[in-house]
Amino acid sequence: MQRDKHAPLSGGGRKRILILRHSRSVRVMHWVNVLTLGIMLMSGLQIFNAHPSLYWGKSSDFSHRLLHMEAVEGAHGHTEGVTRVGGHTFVTTGLFGWSRGSDGTYTERGFPVWATLPGSTWLAMGRLWHLFFAWILVLNGAAYLLIGILSGHLRRDLLPTGADLRSLGHTFVEHVRLRFPKGDEARRYNGIQKLSYLFIVFIVGPLMVLTGLTMSPTMDAGFPWLLDVFDGRQSARTIHFLGAMCLLAFVLVHLVMVIVSGLRNNLRSMITGRYAIEVEQVVAKGAEHE
């Protein structure tokens, strides 16, 4: 984030310069993550669809489900998709419980065709995708941590400063107004960005790995404390699902932010590394001769 490439693009009192925002390793790992996380999310929903219910505790008490998606006979003999959460029932036809299968006809399934990998109901294949790319995701994550610590990226760019924390409220208001820094402040992540990245990297990421491993019967034999930490295999499965929803929410907000804060600039910075910011025209003589 420190090397400047001068590119006088605009006149007047301010000029645009390109700074190196993302190192090559961060860019590569980011795009590996995009592919891997997409596959993990969609194949995870395929696996969820094999039993679209969630429970708390050691085992599945089929009479006490936290979440349940199914097709039921509704009024007037029509089949409806319903989603039951706690004591509430929502009609979710077309989305959850009852939606068009890959052949176009309605079928009972948790998440719809467009959300799962593969699209059709195919648990075996969903597991193959999920348990292959789980390795890629973990290796990518480990590389990110290692490089992030060794290069100082985590400490320099993600550790919030006191000023970051004090201005969280202000930053939030600016975000809601869709006003984003363009000048020198844009050289750094703001407090909200830093905290959300840290939350994903150090809380949600490890939680997903650990709850995933807790669902493995062999891991439970070797590391029974996993079951104590998460209050049982079915709780771990529920937390894994909630973690996935959390990651999905993060990705959606991230995408919105990428678009509203300058799609071209953001995309370029994650592809070539170069990010444009606006700085005051420097009047010092040396700068003119570059």
């Binding site: 696996i47 039993h51 429970y55 599945s60 648990l123 669902m215 019967p217 295999r233």
Partner: peptide, 8 residues
């Protein structure tokens, strides 16, 4: 543990 996701 069933491959579908439930446990008994």
């Amino acid at each position: 543990d069933c491959v579908e996701g439930w446990s008994c």
